[in-house]
Measured scan of single mutants.
Amino acid sequence: MATGGRRGAAAAPLLVAVAALLLGAAGHLYPGEVCPGMDIRNNLTRLHELENCSVIEGHLQILLMFKTRPEDFRDLSFPKLIMITDYLLLFRVYGLESLKDLFPNLTVIRGSRLFFNYALVIFEMVHLKELGLYNLMNITRGSVRIEKNNELCYLATIDWSRILDSVEDNYIVLNKDDNEECGDICPGTAKGKTNCPATVINGQFVERCWTHSHCQKVCPTICKSHGCTAEGLCCHSECLGNCSQPDDPTKCVACRNFYLDGRCVETCPPPYYHFQDWRCVNFSFCQDLHHKCKNSRRQGCHQYVIHNNKCIPECPSGYTMNSSNLLCTPCLGPCPKVCHLLEGEKTIDSVTSAQELRGCTVINGSLIINIRGGNNLAAELEANLGLIEEISGYLKIRRSYALVSLSFFRKLRLIRGETLEIGNYSFYALDNQNLRQLWDWSKHNLTITQGKLFFHYNPKLCLSEIHKMEEVSGTKGRQERNDIALKTNGDQASCENELLKFSYIRTSFDKI
Rank of each mutant, 00 (worst) to 15 (best):
N170G: 06
T211A: 15
N295C: 07
H302N: 11
N149I: 01
G111L: 02
N179Q: 07
L260T: 05
V305L: 04
L332A: 07
I62Y: 00
C255K: 01
H28F: 13
E71G: 13
H307D: 15
S143F: 08
S54E: 08
T329Y: 12
I163V: 12
Q245M: 09
Q276F: 12
G241A: 09
L260P: 00
I306G: 04
N149P: 01
V218K: 14
Q61M: 04
K191M: 09
Y134V: 15
Y118W: 10
D248W: 02
E180P: 11
R145F: 04
Q287R: 15
E238Q: 15
N149E: 00
C252D: 00
P104K: 01
T329I: 15
Y273P: 02
R145N: 10
Y134H: 01
I40M: 10
T85A: 04
L50A: 07
C239N: 00
N309G: 13
L174W: 08
L332G: 15
N195G: 11
P197V: 06
T320C: 14
S77R: 11
P197H: 08
G241C: 05
E231T: 09
Q204S: 05
C243R: 00
D165A: 06
W210K: 06
F258A: 06
Y30V: 05
I201D: 06
A156V: 10
C219E: 03
T157R: 13
C228W: 01
I222G: 11
K129I: 08
I306L: 04
F103L: 03
E33V: 06
N43F: 03
P313Y: 03
C331G: 03
I306R: 02
W278L: 05
R145C: 10
L260R: 00
L240M: 04
L50T: 02
V93K: 00
V206T: 15
D86A: 02
S54A: 06
F205P: 08
S284T: 09
G318Q: 15
C239M: 00
I56N: 00
L133P: 01
S112E: 15
F73G: 09
K224P: 07
V253Q: 06
G95T: 02
G192F: 15
L128A: 04
C286S: 01
N257K: 10
P270G: 02
T68V: 08
V218P: 11
P104Q: 01
L81C: 01
D72F: 07
G188C: 13
N150P: 14
D177F: 11
P31S: 15
R297Q: 11
D247W: 05
N242W: 12
T199Y: 06
K129W: 07
C228D: 05
R141L: 06
R263E: 00
P70I: 09
V108R: 06
Y30C: 13
V206L: 14
F283D: 05
T250L: 10
N43L: 05
I158V: 07
E49L: 07
G58K: 00
C209I: 02
Q287K: 11
E207V: 04
K224E: 14
R263Y: 00
Y87I: 00
H307N: 04
N202T: 10
F258L: 06
N117F: 07
N195P: 08
S317P: 07
I306W: 03
F283M: 07
T189N: 10
D261N: 04
N308M: 08
H226G: 11
L90F: 05
C264D: 00
R297E: 06
M83Y: 02
S54R: 14
L289C: 03
I122P: 12
I84Q: 00
L50R: 02
G37Y: 09
T329K: 03
C255E: 00
S143D: 10
E181A: 13
I201A: 14
K176D: 15
S213H: 06
E238R: 04
P313S: 08
L120G: 00
T329S: 09
M65A: 13
H236L: 01
S166T: 15
G262V: 02
T229A: 04
N202L: 06
D169W: 08
V144I: 14
Y154N: 06
Y94C: 11
D288H: 06
G227Q: 14
